[in-house]
Amino acid sequence: MASVTMQVNGKSVSKDVEGRTLLVDFLRNDLRLTGTHVGCDTSQCGACVVHVNGQSVKACAMFAIEADGAEVATIEGQANADGSLNVIQQAFQDHHGLQCGFCTPGMVMTAAALLKENPKPSEAEVRSYLEGNICRCTGYHNIVKAIMAASGQDVAAIAAE
């Protein structure tokens, strides 16, 4: 067992974990932050994306002890201080960017990383950035639209509905 300490959504946490404990299992099982999901075992689906020191990371591809001393942000910490949805979350609701909701936390965390790097991404840039996030429900149309809307772009002209 090894001791790990990290800031998760602004709160300091310390736990003893086995060395082989993945960050995603640490978040889900030890911290009961079950918003971060596991959709595959090959780091393809992106349902487990969190931010570690500001970078988007697949939490299934990192050991908890590798995040020792790090700042970790998960979907549970994304809403505004008053509990209302943040700009990206609100855009996903406004544009029906989710259906079953399982991939959604990873999508929101990936979108946040994209918009930090590229505040006004084109459609092609959004689609390319989502390469590591799989959604089976939406056909991606409304996810791409939501992310572009969250960046402040006018999406009203995007394909008729």
Partner: peptide, 11 residues
């Protein structure tokens, strides 16, 4: 959507 977008769903 609100619970799914905030990590509060219960799968």
């Amino acid at each position: 959507d609100v619970r799914f977008l905030t990590g509060a769903g219960h799968y």
